[in-house]
Design a protein around this nucleic acid. Structure first.
Lengths: 142, 142
DNA sequence: CTAGAACTATTCAAGCTGCAACCATTGCAG
DNA sequence: CTGCAATGGTTGCAGCTTGAATAGTTCTAG
């Protein structure tokens, strides 16, 4: 079966579908939990990725999206007083994103919600490690 | 390390980011190739999933999206004469999607483009198999 | 020093997506 | 047969996302 190139291609396509499907499943999970805090899915993703002060570009990279999109999402968070845009200490082009007290508090509550019933809970620790290794390898040679 | 629940939760969050990242990477790959045929990413995904006659609901499931979205995308494909909405033979509520000759021809060209330089080519056959197993397990108990 | 390439962030237009509301049809319980 | 819940598809709306164009800043070669 692994010798038939056409079958291998079809298997690879199916694999892409599985990855995308799991990704949507994860995003739906985030959306669901985020809604209970009055956040949209992407807003919650941004909050989750804001592990500390960082630039817009950093956040965009972590969210795997375009910088213009990060602008859009951060606008919402800023309007709700969860995050602040400060001038970057070293680079006047850049801005430094910092969570407000409200932001850190909401982020903590969000993280707690997200760890409960994660879609990846079906996998045990060993499997998660294997998965992480494979994904890192797949992503490395983009 | 696997005994610290907080670290495990953080690792799980990172894993979610990896899955989403790889998914975007795949979709970007599709977008790129699709553009050379004058198709958008989602249009190409729909075409790829149209392996034969199916209903709108079936297509939406295969695309991991809402039926309303399938309506939107199929509208585009239909306007370009790639697919046809026929009344379903058994169920008058449903519609049967069928590729036109132009549609099948374009789909063949698309599949050929997609199999070249897939983002998953970094993984060998064994790794792809284990990945598929893990993803199936993760998705099964949604 | 200076011109130009490269980078950060933003704006805008166009397109994608999910959700809730809706109509028509189906299937089932009474 | 009738009522009614469930299903397939569409519509409208709000929100997300990308890609191109732009302004300001940094870096580098000459």
């Amino acid at each position: 079966m692994s010798s038939d190139p056409e079958a291998a291609a079809a298997a690879e396509r199916q694999l892409c579908g599985l990855v995308n499907g799991l990704s949507r499943q994860i995003e739906e999970h985030v959306r669901e939990r985020a809604a209970t805090l009055g956040l949209t899915g992407p807003q919650a993703t941004a909050l989750r990725e804001l592990t500390g002060p960082m630039t817009m570009r950093d956040l965009a990279d972590r969210m795997s999206c375009e910088p213009s999109n990060a602008t859009f999402v951060v606008d919402k968070l800023e309007k709700r007083g969860l995050v602040e845009r400060r001038p970057h200490p070293q680079d006047r082009r850049a801005k430094q994103l910092v969570l407000t007290p409200d932001g850190t508090e909401l982020r903590d509550r969000l993280l707690e919600l997200l760890t409960k019933d994660s879609p990846l809970a079906a996998l045990d620790q060993d499997e998660q490690d294997t998965l992480q290794g494979l994904l890192l390898r797949a992503r490395s040679l983009h």
